[in-house]
Write a protein that binds this DNA or RNA. Structure first.
Lengths: 218, 218
DNA sequence: GTCTATAACAGGATAGAC
DNA sequence: GTCTATCCTGTTATAGAC
């Protein structure tokens, strides 16, 4: 319980439990829950396997902790931004920048979340509340209501093509997240190596918001 | 080897091997390779576990067969369409219709493929050749060359906003595939049940191509 | 808290009868 | 070809010393 001071090294020691969590994060994100091995996590953390069970009773509980943490990372504040009072164009630009920037740093995240959700759809509920901190029943409607008002306004003014808020949201996050979730496929189809893929994403940060905004025009 | 006639039942017996393959398909697509259990596949196929090993030596070989089959289903002819000589607008419309229609029938497919590719990136190569029947080194360039020419033409004529063929392709397949790959997440965030999700996709079939084409205008 | 050793179990694979 | 019974390996989980 007592926080340990880091006597020498600059990067402070966050304790064994945290080291294990970090290792678990790495391994689960890479291999998926079913494919992850407790032994590999222990090795990655530089401790032995028994210690994992000391801190987190079972593999299931550890997986649970990792998923919860990961869920808070995907869509970091997308729902918050989209539900805010910002101008619609600004929302788009911010979501794009935030997501591409963030996912560039944690490229395994989308693949992991989608895999988990695909194999355990009941976790969707958990994902939503992790993102928003409120119940799933409220999060969606809140965002959609805000968007619907902004869209209606513009459509009436004739400055925007008709679109439902649902399609709006799905289009936007599809364009942001899919390239990372499908990274191996995209690298394969387009014949890119790692460096070229990174460049591709950089280019995308400049082109995506304008692309999306053009699609919104009447 | 001899095809069996179906003496009584109308649905003809496609043989045990095929029944096992179908069952394996169902289970692997639902649970992922690591999460799938031979026992569950046997039960699903209505045979016992030993028979799986009789037909397909190991779990790995069975998984291999399933992946190969699945790979041929995703992007059914997207690469072919995009690499063809069709008009650009027609390509977009056809890809959208083909993919949404097809994925509506096999909703687990994208999640499964992405999971596999995420955990075993080396399979990307196998995916590409399964799609195109030609080597990965040729498939990408072929499509991109065709698109680049069409895009350049239009941009010069001033009828289209500048975009690289790579971003063009990724945008298009992101918008088609992601909603299925992230189905549980989307249902959660938007608060949709199964029926409402199906309606959402129906709506998407009408709205997606126009949306995309608007984004292409100058 | 951390370790070594080992128990307990799950799941894939095989033997052999029919 | 198909089944039942069983083996065997890999993996999670616990006991107990330090």
């Amino acid at each position: 319980m007592a926080a340990k001071a880091a006597p020498f090294s600059i990067e402070r020691d966050r304790g064994t439990e945290q080291r294990i969590l970090d290792a678990a994060n790495t391994v689960f994100l890479r291999r998926g829950t079913a494919g992850a091995r407790m032994e590999e996590i222990a090795r990655e953390a530089g401790v032995n396997q028994a210690l994992l069970h000391y801190y987190f009773r079972t593999k299931d509980r550890l997986a649970e902790a990792v998923f919860r943490h990961a869920a808070q990372q995907l869509l970091p504040s997308v729902i918050e931004i989209l539900g805010s009072a910002l101008d619609l164009d600004v929302k788009v630009e911010r979501v794009v920048q935030l997501e591409l920037e963030h996912l560039s740093r944690t490229p395994h995240l989308p693949g992991y979340i989608l895999s988990e959700l695909h194999q355990r759809p009941e976790r969707a509920r958990q994902l939503i509340s992790a993102i928003t901190g409120i119940t799933p029943e409220e999060a969606g409607p809140r965002v959609l209501t805000a968007l619907r008002r902004q869209i209606d306004e513009r459509v009436k003014a004739g400055t925007m093509a008709a679109i439902t808020p649902e399609q709006f949201v799905v289009n936007l996050i599809s364009l942001c997240i899919f390239p990372f979730a499908a990274r191996p496929m995209i690298m394969g189809v387009l014949g890119l190596d790692q460096v070229e893929f990174a460049r591709f994403i950089e280019q995308r940060r400049r082109l995506l918001a304008p692309f999306f905004l053009r699609a919104l025009r009447p």
